[in-house]
């Protein structure tokens, strides 16, 4: 599923032709490409604990989770009663040695650990902080953030499209090749609401807008 609608998150199977005619759910026409399987959970990736362990290498939450794990490992090695201040951590710290535990414990783990074991914590916290800082300074990593921003650019796109169409509409009903030499787009002249009543060599047209045309109609001809 390498493509995903940036508007509603609809995921398309690899090689799907569905999106050629726009997203079937929201009609969006902007898709982001993910060569791997990541996109399925990327929009909501941050808060989920499982994501932290899965995407260790790529996300901020992963780094935080890893930092927390190291802290916890350090705490476990020191055999200190770290569970007291943070009852939520009890289960996690017990199962810690066995498995890479979820990153959800990260926010709780830090304060709790800090309070309990000053000596080991300092080292652990230092690495944790430094790791968090390292990752957060990388500008390219937070791909999830881009998904959130995408709708903004999506909204900007139609404006550009409209503008281009508008300009195309206005363009070249009469082209001045050189003074006294003109090329006319008859279909464009026919389709225009406005009526060109005078041409100037500098490329300006004097036009009459439709409302005014009604009044000027008889006088122009006679």
């Amino acid at each position: 599923m390498p493509h995903q609608c940036t508007n509603c998150g609809h995921v398309f199977a690899d090689g799907s032709k569905e999106m050629l005619s726009g997203c079937p759910d929201c009609g969006g026409n902007k898709f982001q490409y993910h060569p791997s399987e990541i996109p399925a959970d990327s929009p909501s990736g941050d808060p989920t604990p499982s994501d932290g362990s899965d995407a260790d290498s790529s996300t901020v939450s992963g780094a935080v989770g890893r930092a927390a794990d190291r802290v916890r490992d350090a705490v476990a090695e020191a055999d200190t009663p770290a569970d007291d201040p943070t009852p939520d951590d009890e289960g996690d710290t017990q199962s810690d040695p066995a498995a890479d535990s979820p990153g959800a414990t990260a926010p709780d783990a830090d304060p709790g650990v800090r309070a309990a074991t000053p000596d080991d914590e300092d080292g652990a916290q230092a690495t944790a902080r430094s790791e968090v800082v390292d990752v957060s300074t990388l500008p390219d990593q937070p791909t999830d953030g881009r998904v959130v921003e995408e709708p903004d650019t999506d909204e900007a796109e139609p404006d550009l499209e409209d503008l281009r169409e508008e300009l195309n509409d206005q363009f070249e009903s009469i082209r001045i090749v050189a003074p006294g030499q003109y090329e006319l787009n008859l279909m464009e002249l026919y389709d225009r609401q406005e009526y060109i009543i005078a041409l100037q060599e500098d490329g300006q047209y004097v036009i009459e807008v439709p409302d005014a045309w009604e009044a000027a109609d008889p006088t122009d001809v006679e």
């Binding site: 009469i174 003074p179 006294g180 006319l184 002249l189 026919y190 041409l199 045309w213």
Partner: peptide
């Protein structure tokens, strides 16, 4: 030449007018 250029410009305006009449009147 001046007259020819002027005639050319008026002729172009005339085509625009003819096309407008075809649409409206």
């Amino acid at each position: 030449k001046d007259e020819a250029v002027r005639r050319s410009r008026e002729a172009t305006e005339g085509v625009a007018e003819a096309m407008h009449w075809l649409r409206e009147d």
